[in-house]
């Protein structure tokens, strides 16, 4: 047997014991494209490179600024002014020499042809810290080419992650029971545009409450604000508009009024002033969650989320809403 195979088994021992050899092999054969290289992306990349994916492609055309040093642990002070990808690549490679790393420092071109070419030979696309219209465009292109699509990022102390895996099958096993059978399940995911039109009207009071709609719709309001204005909210002056947008969205989604009649100021106020910024602990949570879910999707082992995760760092909790999905097929 090839020596390298044995070494890999030793290196990945602790995770193979969790998800099995077959999932590990699928990870090793996978090519992942990460778009943009801010704090959350650094975390995602660290996690999937350590886990041993086959090839990582990174696209980012920006240069390192001093601001990036706050959550971007692949950058050093002396990197300021270099291309982000150029600064980060050697440190990413050092994490796991078994992973093939490719970088692209051209701007993201959203034309159909360009996206088609970019996604060739890619299995999974992870777009970080983009605005909603861009994410919708990227998701649409991924659907066309049958690529798994993930989006994620942070907005101050908040974070979100979304996935569209098309029709996805996975194997899961109840590890709490000895000799539990492995069960295969298939789910049909919704596109981002479809998901965001989903109605909450049929949810019980308890189910609605559990999903923490205050946080979900505050984050969606930031997306809507950014789509309308082309910039993120970045001052107290935007609180009222954000709040109004959130209320519009709550109405459109027919969220149970007994749970949330109108958006209180608490979250929108914090988002109005902090959405464009990122801090490491929140990036670590989002990057950990996103990467874990991507590895589940790639490995075909255990259920990936379905399909919008939101996180409130100061509150501590995170929920997943199933938007626009009909469930198992």
């Amino acid at each position: 047997m090839a020596r390298s195979h044995v070494d890999e088994a030793a290196l990945y021992d602790r995770q193979i014991r969790l998800w099995g050899f077959d999932a590990q092999t699928r990870m090793r054969n996978a090519t992942v494209l990460v778009l943009r290289l801010r704090g959350t992306a650094c975390e995602v990349i660290k996690n999937i490179v350590l886990a041993g994916i086959g090839t990582l492609k990174i696209l980012d055309d920006a240069e390192v600024t001093e601001l990036d040093l706050g959550a971007g642990f692949f950058y050093r002070e002396e990197d300021v002014g270099k291309k982000r990808v150029d600064a980060a690549i050697p440190r990413i490679s050092a994490l796991n020499p078994l992973v093939n790393i490719v970088s692209l420092s051209s701007p993201l071109d959203l034309s159909d042809d360009s996206l088609h070419a970019l996604f060739l030979n890619i299995d999974l696309v992870c777009a970080t810290d983009y605005d909603r219209p861009t994410l919708e465009k990227l998701d649409e292109a991924c659907r066309k080419q049958g690529k798994q699509f993930y989006a994620g990022g942070t907005l101050g102390s908040y974070g979100y992650a979304f996935c569209d895996l098309g029709e996805h099958s996975y194997v899961s096993q109840d590890k709490t029971k000895p000799n539990a059978p492995q069960i295969r399940k298939t789910f049909k995911y919704a596109s981002l545009s479809t998901a965001l039109k989903a109605s909450w009207s049929h949810l019980s009071k308890r189910d609605t409450k559990e999903l923490n709609p205050e946080v979900v719709f505050s984050i969606l309001a930031v997306w809507e604000y950014s789509a309308r204005h082309g910039v993120m909210p970045n001052s107290y002056d935007t609180v009222h508009e954000l709040q109004a947008i959130a209320n519009e969205l709550l109405g459109a989604a027919q969220v149970n009024k007994l749970v949330l009649k109108a958006m209180p100021e608490k979250h929108v106020e914090l988002l109005a002033t902090t959405a464009p910024y990122e801090i490491s602990p929140v990036c670590a949570v989002l990057g950990g969650f996103l990467a874990q879910d991507m590895l589940k999707a790639i490995g075909g082992r255990e259920a990936p989320m379905a399909n919008l995760f939101t996180f409130d760092g100061m509150g501590g909790g995170g929920t997943v809403c199933r938007l626009g999905m009909k469930g198992a097929v």
């Binding site: 975390e43 996690n47 350590l50 602990p281 990467a291 874990q292």
Partner: peptide
């Protein structure tokens, strides 16, 4: 795995 540890650290 790294991912759980990363989330926990945050």
């Amino acid at each position: 795995i790294a991912t759980t540890n990363a989330m926990i650290s945050g």
